[in-house]
């Protein structure tokens, strides 16, 4: 998959190259609206959640998730249906990274939007517990280096297999396994620290 060309070295105004089959002709996959709609319906939540776990606010994740699917819509004919999830997650990680870099000054408090989220169906106590738990989770994730965090989130939260993660990140399987091991160790050590802390966690 690697061409050895850095993203920055690529021509900036050209469309991404289409896949080329062995016959020399460009490969195109079905790009029916039904396929796209099904993709959005099935993968929007995991993509959005991944964006949240890599550190975007809810509003940022909303925007970024839409960008991911706009990209997918444009390139649907290029995306192998068997690997479309990998494409979406990989794109989400790029979009998320860019959102981090260009994060705007607006820092909105997500509390006001919380009630409109799907997980607001439970009672207020549970909601607050979930929010607190997520804050802790994000805190632990933020303490990890990005390469570990991404592998951890994809495996433990999004439940991708290690092979799928290797596909998303274009990494050798051994690297994925090693990062997952280290990420889990860091996560569990963070959890142990919290558990030892007297009183209610922040």
């Amino acid at each position: 998959m690697h061409t050895g060309v850095s993203p920055i070295e690529r021509p900036q105004t050209s469309e991404p190259p289409l896949p080329v089959a062995s016959s020399g002709e460009r490969v195109r996959f079905p790009a029916a609206p039904a396929r796209l709609e099904e993709l959005v319906r099935r993968e929007l939540t995991p993509v959005w959640r991944l964006l949240r776990r890599v550190g975007l606010s809810e509003a940022e994740a909303d925007d970024a998730a839409q960008q991911v699917f706009i990209v997918a819509a444009r390139r649907l004919a290029e995306i192998d249906p068997a690997r479309q999830r990998a494409f979406l997650f990989s794109t989400a990680l790029h979009v998320g990274r860019r959102a981090h870099r260009t994060r705007s000054r607006r820092r909105e408090d997500d509390d006001d939007a919380l009630v409109s989220r799907r997980d607001s169906v439970p009672g207020l106590d549970e909601l607050l517990d979930q929010k607190r738990a997520r804050a802790l989770l994000d805190e632990l994730l933020a303490a990890m280096s990005e390469d570990l965090r991404v592998v951890f989130v994809l495996y433990e939260i999004e439940e991708l297999t290690m092979a799928e993660i290797a596909q998303v990140l274009e990494l050798p399987p051994g690297t994925v396994a090693s990062r997952l091991r280290r990420a889990r160790a860091e996560f569990q050590s963070g959890v142990a620290r919290i558990e030892k802390t007297p009183g209610e966690p922040r």
């Binding site: 609206p33 796209l36 709609e37 959005v40 319906r41 929007l44 939540t45 959005w48 959640r49 949240r52 776990r53 809810e58 994740a61 909303d62 998730a65 839409q66 699917f69 706009i70 997918a72 819509a73 939007a113 409109s116 989220r117 799907r118 997980d119 517990d129 979930q130 738990a133 997520r134 802790l136 989770l137 632990l140 989130v153 433990e156 939260i157 959890v191």
Partner: peptide
């Protein structure tokens, strides 16, 4: 903590908006 992470999801409105944005 992981369960809380998995439980989070976007608003229903985002789905509709994304479908529109995707054409």
């Amino acid at each position: 903590l992981l369960r809380a992470g998995r439980a989070e999801g976007p608003s229903d409105k985002l789905l509709a908006d994304t479908l529109v944005a995707a054409g």
